[in-house]
Simulated scan of single mutants.
Amino acid sequence: MTGTSETRRAGGRDRDAEGRARNARPRDGLGRPLPYGADGVERAPEGVVRRPEATVAEAQALLDAGRPFHAHEVFEDAWKAGPAEERGLWRGLAQLAVGLTHAARGNVTGGTRLLRRGAEEVEEWTSATGRPRPYDLDLADITGWARELAAVVERDAEPLDAARESPRLRGRPT
């Protein structure tokens, strides 16, 4: 089997050292599984506990590189490992990254639904906590971006360039 040294095949399924299911197949830049042995892009390691600032920086770099699926995995780590009161924020950001992934793959329905769902989740979290800029995240800009992009995806119904359409998590440069 090819894959990471931390993953092994057991009973026809990829498993990590603790026996949890982990897909070790290589993936393309949009997270689509490739055949074992194919050259894929480097994957973001799963289950990494990062400081929130490192989560945002790593996710932004992946988004800028046109790899929103991989950014989703970084946000998912924060969602699963972070404090309970922040899970809605990280889950919403993960949904936005997956929405961008689906839109880039040409999945109009999945892209628009997840972009809108993620925007709602982030907005609900902001309203509930009164924190519009945690970790210097520009949540109003992010939710506006997601809603605008969902409308474009729905209207144009064709794959988009994930790198060109990626959000600026800390606001647009001036």
Rank of each mutant, 00 (worst) to 15 (best):
V56K: 09
V56C: 13
R117Q: 15
R147F: 09
T143C: 12
V108E: 04
P132Y: 00
G82Q: 05
P68F: 04
A119C: 00
R87K: 12
G118V: 03
T109A: 13
W90V: 14
R133Q: 14
W145G: 02
G88R: 10
T112K: 04
G118S: 03
V153Q: 03
T126C: 02
D138I: 03
E124N: 08
D141V: 10
K80P: 02
A151C: 11
A84K: 14
E148D: 14
W90K: 12
E124A: 13
H70S: 07
Q60D: 08
F69Y: 15
T143A: 11
A94T: 04
R133H: 15
H72L: 01
G130N: 01
A97Y: 03
V98M: 06
R131D: 12
N107T: 09
G99P: 00
A84F: 12
D138A: 15
A97P: 02
T101F: 08
L137G: 09
R147A: 04
V122K: 05
L137P: 09
R147L: 13
L89V: 09
A150C: 10
T55K: 11
E123L: 03
L93T: 02
E58D: 15
A119R: 01
D138N: 13
T129H: 11
A97V: 02
L96I: 12
P132L: 00
L89F: 11
L89I: 13
R131P: 03
S127E: 14
A104V: 09
L93E: 04
A59R: 09
G106T: 12
A61I: 03
D77K: 04
A128Q: 15
L139W: 00
K80A: 09
G106W: 12
P134D: 07
R131Y: 08
E76N: 01
Q95R: 13
W90H: 10
D141N: 11
E154K: 14
G111H: 05
R67S: 07
H70A: 10
K80V: 05
W90Y: 06
G144C: 06
A151Y: 04
V153R: 04
L137D: 13
A94S: 01
E120W: 02
I142H: 06
R113C: 09
A54Q: 13
T101R: 14
E120V: 14
E73F: 09
T55I: 12
R116K: 02
G111L: 13
R105D: 10
L115W: 01
L137H: 06
A94Q: 07
G88I: 08
T112H: 01
V122I: 12
D138Q: 07
L96P: 06
Y135K: 08
R105F: 07
G130M: 05
A65F: 01
E85T: 10
A151V: 09
E121Y: 07
K80W: 14
E123P: 01
D136N: 11
G99I: 03
A119T: 00
E58F: 06
E148T: 10
T112A: 10
S127P: 07
R147C: 05
V153P: 08
L63C: 05
L149Y: 00
V108D: 00
R117C: 00
L149G: 03
G130L: 00
L62C: 04
G110V: 02
E58Q: 15
L139A: 00
L89M: 11
A71Q: 05
W125Y: 11
P68T: 06
W79H: 11
A150Y: 00
R117P: 03
R116E: 09
